[in-house]
């Protein structure tokens, strides 16, 4: 029964990523792809934390922390590089 609960949980969390994919695919503008980076950061870290809860291995927290850090960098880089002109302040 526990396995079914865990499977359902992980499936729900993965559904997030799927919806993010749909938004990137259907998005009329470029900004919508950037939403995917935000969703991936939050939802992906949540998925890794769910793995920690299920397997109780300590290194998943390190994975989640590392991924959260880099997802932030990727999101900010997306906003600045894609949606801007180069070499300018504001």
């Amino acid at each position: 029964m526990m396995d079914f609960v865990y499977g359902l949980l992980l499936f729900l969390l993965m559904l997030n990523l799927l919806l993010g994919l749909v938004r990137v695919f259907r998005g009329p503008e470029l900004v919508d792809s950037m939403m995917a980076s935000l969703l991936l950061g939050t939802g992906g870290t949540a998925l890794l934390l769910a793995f920690f809860k299920i397997t109780k291995e300590a290194y998943y927290i390190n994975l989640a922390l590392g991924f959260a850090l880099l997802a932030g960098v990727v999101g900010v880089a997306f906003a600045i590089i894609i949606l801007g002109k180069s070499k300018d302040g504001i």
Partner: peptide, 12 residues
């Protein structure tokens, strides 16, 4: 998970 799903449905 339900709140996350709510956010994603809002995204769509």
């Amino acid at each position: 998970a339900i709140f996350l799903l709510a956010g994603s449905i809002g995204l769509i």
